[in-house]
């Protein structure tokens, strides 16, 4: 058995673990610059996580095992997705384990248990967050599936590694497709909704009635909270990685090309920096939507994704 692919796998997971908080730090820094504030250190998210890990856990008295199990599950699943998605290099040992449909399924498990944990303690806020999360997911998940289906129709495969390979082999023509335009647009809308960013949800707010994801974490503390926070940072990182792999796969190393890895790393950093700037640009220029506007937003995403799939049949 060759050991090298497994080392690469480990490297990729480490990049995910380390890169996710860094990316959040980068986003915050840009936001501060744009808003004319003095920014905290780029490494502030690490300090926050460290602080949370060193604290004791305070648990609600009627919390069941689901509440305590969920942080580990969510964190573990996010890591597993990180091992499957080609962030740096394709054809990793884990990449045949699951295709894009299964990746969507993995995100769904994490969401399922987070929503259950929100309802476990029996407060009004937790239930509210769970209900809203499931509402948003029920529109965002099909949209996500249709988006990846459209892309996989082009590359005749639902495996992410295979998609990246086909797209890079066919050069610029492969991504310059009508169906990709629609899919990209839909994907951006979904990514915003799924990772809880403005205008669907606001990760910085603690104003009770407008928040969605935070309400479910309200009763968490200590290491549990740290794991949940870290997982949601990684989720943002992973969504961008998936988008990157599907819509701008240039620079991801092919299998067995060791020399391409530094280059891939370089591209990775550049892309993330640019995406961070774009993301912040959107977040500062948009206001958060009313809750029931988000359904229109997601409905539109779903239909645009469908249109993308149709345009594959009509135009290509």
């Amino acid at each position: 058995m060759k050991i090298l692919p497994y080392i690469l796998e480990l490297v990729q997971v480490l990049i995910l673990l380390v890169g996710a908080p860094l990316f959040v730090g980068w986003i915050r820094r840009i936001k501060c610059w744009l808003q004319g504030r003095k920014s905290p250190s780029l490494f502030q998210p690490y300090f926050e996580l460290l602080k949370l890990f060193s604290k004791d856990v305070y648990l609600a008295e009627n919390a069941s095992w689901i509440f305590r199990f969920t942080p580990y599950l969510v964190f573990g699943i996010t890591l597993l997705i990180g091992a499957i998605v080609p962030i740096l290099i394709i054809d990793l040992p884990f990449s045949t384990t699951a295709d894009v449909i299964a990746i969507v399924g993995l995100f769904a498990i994490a969401r399922f248990f987070t929503a259950l944990a929100g309802m476990d303690v029996g407060t009004a806020f937790g239930g509210m967050g769970s209900s809203r999360t499931m509402m948003i997911a029920s529109l965002a998940e099909p949209a996500m599936l249709i988006t990846v289906f459209t892309v996989s129709l082009t590359s005749h495969s639902t495996s992410l590694s295979q998609i990246v390979q086909t797209l890079t082999n066919n050069g610029i023509l492969a991504t310059l497709r009508p169906s990709f335009v629609f899919s990209l647009w839909a994907f951006l809308m979904i990514a915003v909704a799924e990772t809880g960013r403005v205008p669907v949800d606001n990760p910085d707010t603690h104003l009770e009635l407008t928040m969605i994801h935070e309400t479910m974490l309200l009763e968490y503390s200590g290491r549990h909270l740290a794991l949940m926070e870290w997982a949601s940072m990684m989720k943002l990182f992973l969504f961008i990685s998936i988008g990157k792999a599907v819509f701008m796969p240039w620079g991801i190393a092919q299998s067995g090309q060791l020399l391409a890895i530094p280059l891939a790393l370089f591209f990775l950093i550049i892309k993330f920096m640019v995406i961070g700037v774009i993301l912040v640009g959107f977040e500062t220029s948009l206001a958060k939507m009313r809750l029931f506007r988000t359904t229109e937003f997601l409905g539109a995403a779903l239909l645009i994704a469908t249109l993308g799939m149709l345009s594959y049949f009509i135009l290509e």
Partner: peptide, 24 residues
Amino acid sequence: PIGAVLLALTSALAAATFVKAFGV
């Protein structure tokens, strides 16, 4: 494609249904 969309919608809604069933 419309069929695929509806199937995807169904599976997402099923998750919401059973979060409700178990959670409540």
